[in-house]
Design a protein around this nucleic acid. Structure first.
Length: 415
DNA sequence: TCTGGGGTCCTAGGACCC
DNA sequence: TCTGGGGTCCTAGGACCC
């Protein structure tokens, strides 16, 4: 049976940094970092000095004294990321977007219109460069996993097509760290048994792999190492959870810190849930202590919720439980709230019932309806006047936020 | 010198039901 | 009554990805 490689993985190169260099030509060819306290993205010129995303700004400056920090034109990131995906959409409806700057596309159904996968990939790269001014790398292969690896190999600004006959020859010389699912921990474990390339992984006895990584991960990695990847593109998948977190520096674990922070986080999460009518049943909190160790607590309710104050109260109960179990911890460095088990209802706007869930959970409380009304009022004002128009203003989050809200929103997944 | 923020998936043990 | 097996849900933690 003859098969050809039709899966494309397209990935914009150093995306935020490239956008900044596009908008300000004086930055081109120079080492730049988007962000300030934390490096959100680094240009290739900066990466040559070892600067990486997620790195503290101070460390980045040490590595690269001439590094230029730029503020971040967040609305342009969203616009240009969307525009690049739209170019893919012009060729095929089978597009799975992974993030703001990355997507898979299957062109099996459109080669009769636009030519071979290689020709389509070339055309996509040319259009993104000509119309948007951005470099984009593309990998083409028979499987998602291999296409993704090919695009990594193609960077920066390249195209790599892996023909079916050459798959294992291409794959087996590469380091295991390029594989999807192999991070620092797995890489270190594999190194313990002398496995550093994908080929060495492929030749490793499955029993040894299972002992090392567990049955699921072991079998999955073994399959990927032989380019057996059964995953199809998923064009429309819904989010399974929504959350928000806030790094606090080093703060005392007291109500004056915890309550307003949780209210702020609950507001961020619950307003998103309400906007898409996707309340959720499971509430999870995460508390990180001074030494960066972290603990989670969760509870699954009978009814889904999306009311801000209800969520904040449940989160508060959970956090108090964590602190009660760790009485020696007096300082916290991060709080997070996440809601999962999201309601799958296709309804666009439920008018009432979400507030009523509160009543069910806490019989006798008469606050459910009133809270629902308050949420609705805030949502409506924000719809008309913007997010900053109204909120939980008592939130004394002087927290000079290390990451601007606009950046948070870019990372949010569509619910 | 202690890395931000938004997500997904897997594991393992316990509860509970059939 | 005791024992075994399978399935599902919940919780906590870990690893990973962008």
């Amino acid at each position: 049976m003859e098969t050809i490689a039709t899966i494309l993985h397209a990935d914009l190169d150093a995306f935020y940094a490239s956008v900044e260099q596009l908008l300000d030509p004086s930055l081109r060819g120079k080492p730049i970092a988007v962000g300030g306290g934390v490096v959100l993205a680094a240009s290739y010129e900066a990466r040559a000095f070892g600067v990486r995303g997620g790195m503290p700004g101070r460390k980045a400056r040490e590595l690269c004294p001439q590094l230029i920090f730029v503020g971040g034109n967040f609305s342009h990131y969203q616009r240009l990321g969307d525009a690049a995906i739209k170019v893919l959409d012009d060729f095929t409806p089978v597009v799975e977007r992974i993030s703001i700057d990355e997507a898979f596309a299957d062109v099996a159904g459109c080669t009769h219109l636009f030519g071979s996968p290689r020709e389509i990939a070339t055309a996509i790269r040319r259009r993104v460069r000509a119309e948007l001014g951005l470099p984009i790398s593309i990998g083409v292969a028979r499987t998602k996993h291999l296409a993704k690896i090919a695009s990594q190999v193609a960077k920066p600004d390249g195209l790599v097509v892996v023909d079916p006959g050459t798959e294992l020859a291409f794959l087996h010389d590469l380091p295991v760290s390029l594989m999807w699912g192999v991070g620092p921990a797995t890489k270190a474990r594999l190194a313990e048994i002398g496995v550093e390339t994908i080929g060495e992984l492929a030749r490793t006895h499955s029993g040894a792999l299972t002992r090392l990584l567990g049955p699921a991960a072991g079998e999955k990695l073994a399959a990927l190492a032989w380019n057996r990847d059964p995953r199809k593109l998923e064009t429309r998948r819904r989010a399974h959870s929504a959350g928000a977190q806030s790094a606090l520096g080093q703060k005392p674990a007291v109500a004056q810190v915890i309550v307003p922070t949780l209210l702020h986080l609950a507001d961020r999460v619950a307003s998103r849930l309400r906007a898409k009518a996707r309340p959720g049943r499971t509430v999870t909190v995460r508390v990180r202590f001074a030494d960066l160790s972290a603990v989670t607590r969760s509870i699954t309710l009978d009814q889904p919720i999306s009311a801000t104050t209800m969520l904040a109260e449940i989160a508060g109960d959970l956090v108090r439980g964590v602190l009660a179990d760790h009485p020696r911890e007096k300082t916290i460095s991060l709080l997070a709230i996440s809601v999962s088990h999201l309601w799958e209802s296709a309804e666009l706007q439920l008018d009432l019932p979400l507030g009523l869930a509160d009543e069910k959970r806490r019989p006798g409380s008469k606050k459910g309806l009133a809270r629902f009304g308050a949420d609705r009022a805030i949502d409506k004002i924000r719809e008309r006047f913007g997010k900053q128009a109204v909120g939980y203003g008592t939130v004394a989050l002087e927290a000079a936020r290390s990451v601007p809200d606009e950046f948070r929103e870019l990372a949010e997944k569509e619910l």
